[in-house]
Simulated scan of single mutants.
Amino acid sequence: MRVKVVCVGGGPAGLYLAILLKRQDPSHDVTVHERNPEGRTYGWGVTYWRGLLDKLRAYDPETARAIEAHSVRWTDGVARVRGLTTRHRGDEGFGIGRHRLLDLLAGRARALGVRLEFESEPTEPPAGADLVVAADGVHSALRGGAADRFGTRVTTGRNPYIWLGTTKVFDAFTFAFTETEHGWIWAYGYAYSGDHSTCVVECSPETCAGLGLDRAGEGEGLALLEKLFADVLDGHPLIARSGASWQPFRTLTNRAWHHGNLVLLGDAAHTTHYSIGAGTTLALEDAMCLADALRAHTGLPEALAAYERRRRAALLSAQSAARYSAQWYENLPRYIHLPPHRMFALLGQRHSPLLPYVPPQLYYGLDRAAGRLEALRRLKRWLGPRAARALHARATSRRS
């Protein structure tokens, strides 16, 4: 059956959903509205992992091939603390420029017959559409117009951060920790092309204020950060997009993800802390799940309910990991004085719901033992999802 779909928001979630719907049925009438001019976007590069690439291949091999061909990859993680460097082999990761990713998705959508309307931002659900998709980000105008229906809740994190770029091309996912007289400041760096990397810098509010970063001009702030991270930047500059500023991360949740024929997708529905590098992956997986639900159910209410139910369940582990990851950095003094190889090992375990309650040295020893004992490995795998479900149930009961 031919349906008319209007998607507001031309980010990864909205564009990929449009691609999947046109692949399912070329007769569908699909339009994507994007507030920005074509070719303009925020941010630098995005990360993803092998698991997402496998899913992309299953849903649309052509898109998967294009994304992989324009991505850089790494397998190592590097941490630098007090002039010491430790390197660990990890899972295969990928980086791609956000601009490049959107260009590839837009090109594929156009080739399939999707209409793309740039510099267009409907603030109310367009009339005449069978389905309206709010993929317009954390500040979604469509969701805001029915805020009481969706039950939007925003939690502000403690640490401020700033999203920057650099011409330094990192050969691994790099963590750099620098001690100042006002406390620790750290950066996450990863390549996304042959000549640029993303560099996210974070610190405590006290360190940000003590260093004057919260009131410094752009040039002054970048110069100070370049000095603090000179050992990892190797003389390369840091680059700021227009409007880049220090701000705390906002975690957004919604009590409901759909109302009538309006459904939330990607950051309009949920956000997870940037330190787990999952935002783009979760947005694309939202699109996959919604497309599957619309194909499997003939009735729109049933399809949207199935989508919301499945994605809420799938997001539990990622949301738990993001929550504990953010808390790990907020409590960095608890771990930073460990020997670098031990600190980096616990950095890799920052998603664990047990770590905040076990002395770091003891946890490190238990984790080493768990690597050798299958029974303990099974216990860790068993505890993780159950802790996430228990926290979700507790949060839900508090809201109700």
Results as ranks from 00 to 15, higher is better:
175 F>A: 12
350 R>N: 13
102 L>S: 01
170 F>V: 11
219 G>K: 04
260 G>N: 05
395 A>E: 11
250 R>N: 09
94 F>C: 13
319 Q>S: 14
29 D>Q: 09
354 L>V: 11
103 D>P: 04
222 L>N: 01
271 T>K: 03
173 F>M: 13
189 G>Q: 06
283 A>H: 03
283 A>S: 14
246 W>L: 11
227 K>E: 15
96 I>W: 00
400 S>Y: 07
86 T>Q: 08
349 Q>D: 13
38 E>T: 08
259 H>Q: 08
104 L>H: 02
32 V>F: 02
398 R>G: 05
119 E>A: 13
3 V>W: 09
278 A>H: 08
148 D>H: 09
352 S>M: 07
213 L>G: 01
240 A>W: 01
143 R>C: 09
280 T>C: 14
394 R>K: 12
43 G>H: 01
317 S>L: 14
209 A>P: 02
261 N>V: 05
184 W>S: 10
282 L>P: 03
270 H>D: 05
220 E>I: 04
247 Q>M: 08
276 I>D: 00
221 G>V: 03
143 R>T: 10
74 W>C: 08
98 R>L: 10
79 A>N: 05
358 V>H: 00
374 E>P: 12
188 Y>G: 10
42 Y>V: 11
252 L>C: 05
99 H>L: 14
123 T>I: 06
100 R>Q: 15
99 H>Y: 10
51 G>A: 13
304 L>M: 14
68 E>A: 15
179 E>K: 15
58 A>T: 09
218 E>P: 12
136 D>Q: 03
353 P>A: 03
12 P>N: 03
347 L>S: 06
216 A>Y: 06
297 H>G: 03
53 L>Y: 01
212 G>T: 09
238 L>C: 07
117 E>A: 11
203 C>P: 06
294 L>T: 07
236 H>W: 00
141 A>R: 12
92 E>I: 13
272 T>M: 09
16 Y>E: 03
65 R>Y: 01
340 P>C: 04
189 G>E: 06
80 R>N: 06
152 T>P: 11
321 A>M: 14
67 I>L: 10
321 A>G: 00
253 T>S: 14
77 G>A: 04
286 D>E: 07
3 V>Q: 12
75 T>F: 07
21 L>S: 02
296 A>N: 13
171 D>P: 09
369 A>C: 13
125 P>R: 03
371 G>I: 10
366 L>K: 01
20 L>M: 07
68 E>V: 08
180 T>P: 02
221 G>Q: 05
273 H>F: 11
227 K>F: 06
74 W>S: 03
322 A>P: 03
218 E>Y: 00
91 D>N: 12
274 Y>M: 15
167 T>P: 03
142 L>W: 00
94 F>S: 08
334 R>M: 04
271 T>Q: 02
158 R>S: 09
68 E>I: 11
320 S>P: 04
218 E>H: 01
354 L>P: 03
68 E>F: 02
379 L>P: 02
149 R>C: 11
197 S>N: 07
144 G>A: 10
384 G>D: 12
54 D>L: 12
122 P>D: 06
32 V>N: 00
205 P>V: 11
